[in-house]
């Protein structure tokens, strides 16, 4: 037999279930699940709990499918970056063709089932998200423009909008603002990372802003995007999805985030290297908390509103 799979010496390279699961970028999937859930629960229309569970699952699978297609296309970059070199394709455990097949199959599956479970507006948004992330971002713009992070951020920002559409069947100002929250959060978050992790992107030849426009320009970009982000984050508080709790959280977090972005802008490389990029690293850690707490506050507002309705009905 010539089948390599029957060769016991190939056992070390045999793909396990966890390798195929890793293709779906589970860590990114947790963000997708959380923000989609908030979008779905913050919507004024209620869906059956089982349908809601399925909708979140299909959105997560769709996000995972785009992750697998991204890994298939970017296998050459992943192989030279320390952070990604151990992924299933560059490490040789899964072939590029397998990842492509899995990504395409799960894309079709997730879109079709989300449409059947909820509505075709939500399914259309999911299909567009996968297309946007894989074709527009991964295949076209990632290696071409230093604004790649901004464009990639748009793809990651769609889940709450899809969750909202799954419940309401449409798009509204609240879902657009929830989209904006993740969309405008992504550039400062990743540029702060790029400021203290520059080697990886340099080696891969990906045009990061730090390389193409220089680090002082990147610092300025972080501050400008943070101002726009803060304005939209606060505006969300005045919609039906927001409320006093959300506004309180948003005011505190955005004040801290603006202060961090201001500090980053007013530093140079000598100052940053002296304290081993302490401000940039602090800003990056705060950014993780920033997104989680904003969506957490929206979830809390939705829960309070539901409890109020239940209380009123008793």
């Amino acid at each position: 037999m010539s089948d390599a799979s029957l060769d016991p010496t190939a056992a070390g390279q045999e793909a396990q279930f966890s390798d195929y699961f890793a293709l779906l970028k589970p860590r990114v999937m947790t963000l997708v699940v959380f923000t989609a859930l908030v979008g779905l629960l913050a919507a004024p229309d209620q869906v059956h709990p089982f349908v809601a569970l399925c909708a979140i699952l299909f959105i997560a699978v769709g996000g995972g499918a785009s992750g697998a297609l991204n890994m298939w296309w970017d296998a050459d970059i992943d192989a030279v970056m320390r952070r990604t070199a151990k992924r299933p394709i560059p490490s040789g455990r899964v072939t590029g063709e397998e990842a492509r097949g899995l990504g395409l199959a799960l894309s079709g599956f997730s879109v079709m089932f989300l449409g059947l479970a909820t509505n075709w507006v939500a399914a259309g948004l999911l299909a567009f998200t996968i297309f946007f992330y894989v074709v527009i971002y991964t295949m076209w713009l990632k290696r071409w423009t230093p604004q790649n992070i901004v464009i990639g951020g748009a793809a990651g920002a769609f889940p709450p909008m899809i969750g909202w559409a799954a419940a309401t069947g449409g798009v509204s100002i609240e879902s657009v603002l929830m989209f904006s929250l993740t969309f405008l959060w992504t550039p400062p978050h990743f540029w702060a990372l790029a400021l203290f992790m520059r080697k990886d992107y340099d080696n891969a030849g990906v045009p990061m802003l730090t390389v193409t426009h220089g680090r002082p320009s990147t610092r300025k970009h972080v501050f400008v995007y943070t101002i726009i982000l803060a304005a939209l984050a606060l505006a969300t508080g005045f919609t039906s999805a927001g409320g006093p709790l959300y506004l309180s959280v948003a005011i505190v977090l955005n004040a801290m985030f603006l202060k961090g972005a201001w500090d980053i802008w007013h530093r140079d490389e000598i100052m940053a290297e002296t304290d081993n990029y302490a401000v940039e690293k602090g800003f990056f850690k705060l950014s993780l908390l920033y997104l989680f707490l904003h969506f957490g506050a929206l979830l809390a507002e939705a829960t309070i509103a539901r409890l109020g309705i239940l209380w009123g009905a008793l």
């Binding site: 799979s5 045999e14 966890s18 089982f50 479970a117």
Partner: peptide, 28 residues
């Protein structure tokens, strides 16, 4: 065959995924 042992985790995982799919479709 040794192959069956090597692929046990993979086959088990796929089985669980297929079972979950049945539950989802039935529930929906």
């Amino acid at each position: 065959h040794e192959l069956h042992h090597r692929r046990h985790g993979r086959n088990l995982g796929l089985g669980i995924v297929l079972a979950a799919l049945i539950v989802i479709i039935f529930g929906l």
